[in-house]
């Protein structure tokens, strides 16, 4: 094999490694609970996060002129088995909203008011945390487990 082919091959390998590494670090999304977010607040500012929480109905504040929504979510576990063990998603969300001491997180989202955004809904959000401690969500998916136990597949949402 001629050296120029080996060099060419190495260049391709390097390019692919670069593409993978840079795209991974730019687009990796960390699944975190609110408890974890609160614990590591300073380290994760600016990182892309995926967070699930229980919506506190009283805190929802919608400004139709700027299409901006503020609300607060309470910590729920990310572990499905634990959710089942604690009586299902609906009960876990209900308890999270009512409990006093659970960690909470303020969220800002821009967009039209989703119908499903209400008390004790599960909010699954992607976005990032800023230095003010507020979570800026780019994407907001909502689930109301009381009505339909079976969620639609992820992609259909």
């Amino acid at each position: 094999m001629k050296p120029k082919f080996i060099i060419g091959g190495l260049l391709i390998v390097a390019a692919v490694i670069y593409l993978i590494a840079s795209s991974t670090s730019a687009n990796a999304e960390y699944f975190m609970t609110i408890e974890e977010v609160k614990a590591q607040e300073s380290e994760i500012i600016g990182k892309s996060l995926r967070i699930s929480g229980a919506v506190l109905g009283d805190t929802i504040n919608y400004d139709p002129d700027t299409l901006s929504i503020n609300f607060t979510v309470a910590n729920v576990t990310g572990d499905n088995d634990e959710i089942e063990a604690n009586g299902g998603l609906a009960k876990v969300l209900h308890d999270a909203v009512r409990a006093e001491g659970t960690p909470r997180l303020d969220v800002v989202y821009n967009g039209p008011m989703p119908d499903l955004l209400k008390n004790e809904a599960q909010a699954i959000m992607t976005g990032h945390l800023e230095a003010d401690g507020v979570f800026y969500a780019d994407e907001l998916l909502l689930k109301c487990p009381t009505k339909y136990e079976e969620a639609i597949p992820d992609q259909a949402e």
Binding site: S22, S23, T24, A26, N27, A28, M32, R50, G78
Partner: peptide, 18 residues
């Protein structure tokens, strides 16, 4: 131990040049 995922933007960015 941390749950991390990569979504469509990862694939789009990494495969695009290829």
């Amino acid at each position: 131990g941390s749950k991390v995922t990569v979504g469509p933007p990862f694939y789009e960015r990494a495969t695009g040049p290829v």
